[in-house]
Amino acid sequence: MKVWLNNKEVETDSITVSQFLEELLLPRYGIAVALDNKLLPQGQWSETLLYEGMRLVVIKAACGG
């Protein structure tokens, strides 16, 4: 299946958002996920199923004043 992560198409075999983030080796702390411009709370990652063309945004910390 192909999903969109931060505007880039990614091929994945994962079933859930949680598995997808693990597949990408992303840490659980220090990131946040949005789906359709709404926050997807961490508590919902394991129950949210991926679907073809799904658009996810994942953010992390950056240096800034």
Binding site: V10, A61, A62, G64
Partner: peptide, 14 residues
């Protein structure tokens, strides 16, 4: 601190 989008090929020090 600020926030930015993760880039999959970005191996920046966190």
């Amino acid at each position: 601190l600020a926030m930015k989008r993760i880039e999959l090929d970005d191996k920046d020090d966190d």
